[in-house]
C-alpha cells in the first residue's frame, strides 16, 4: 500500500495529534459530567481512542512500531476493563435498580453530606413509534401478545 501522505510529514502528525486531543477532551468531559455508568465507560473508551490516535501518529512520524504495539496493549487492557466494569455495573443494577453513579454514594465518607437530586420538569420528548411486523402464522394456544415495547431506548 502506498502511503497517502509523505512519511515524515509534520503536518499530518500535528493534525492527528489535535484529533487525538479532541477525542481525549470529549471523553474527559463525558466521564466528568454524565451520570449513567454505561455512558461514563463509553467516555473512558473514547479517551483511549484519542490516546491510540496520538500513539499511532507518533509511530508514523518516527517510522517504527512502538506506538502500534502500545495500541495493541491498549486494546487488550480495554477488553479486560470492559469485562470487569460491566460485571460491576450489572451487580450494582441488581442491587439498586439504577445505572446511576450517585447510587454509589453509599460508599462516601461518613462526614460528607448526601447529594440530593432536584425535581426535574416533565420530559417533553415524544414517545418513540417503533415499526411493527404483522403477525405471521397462528399464536400457540395459551400465549398472549407479549408487550415488550419500550417507550424509549
Amino acid at each position: 500500500m502506498t502511503p497517502l501522505v509523505a512519511a515524515t510529514s509534520t503536518a499530518l502528525l500535528q493534525n492527528a495529534l489535535v484529533v487525538g486531543a479532541m477525542l481525549f477532551a470529549l471523553g474527559l468531559v463525558g466521564i466528568l459530567t454524565r451520570r449513567n455508568l454505561i455512558v461514563m465507560f463509553l467516555s473512558a473508551e473514547l479517551m483511549l481512542q484519542g490516546i491510540s490516535v496520538s500513539l499511532v501518529a507518533w509511530s508514523r512520524h518516527h517510522g517504527d512500531f512502538g506506538g502500534h504495539v502500545l495500541v495493541i496493549f491498549v486494546l487488550t487492557v480495554a477488553a479486560c476493563e470492559a469485562a470487569v466494569a460491566l460485571v460491576f455495573v450489572l451487580q450494582a443494577f441488581a442491587r439498586t435498580g439504577r445505572l446511576d453513579v450517585a447510587a454509589w454514594q453509599a460508599l462516601r465518607e461518613a462526614t460528607l453530606a448526601r447529594s440530593v437530586d432536584h425535581a426535574l420538569p416533565a420530559s417533553d420528548a415524544e414517545p418513540q413509534r417503533w415499526p411493527r411486523l404483522s403477525t405471521a402464522g397462528v399464536l400457540p394456544p395459551g400465549a398472549e401478545e407479549p408487550s415488550l415495547e419500550r417507550e424509549h431506548v
Partner: peptide, 11 residues
C-alpha cells in the same frame, strides 16, 4: 423503560 432521571441531568 423510558428516560431515567439520571440520563436527563449531568453533574
Amino acid at each position: 423503560s423510558g428516560l431515567a432521571s439520571y440520563d436527563r441531568v449531568s453533574n
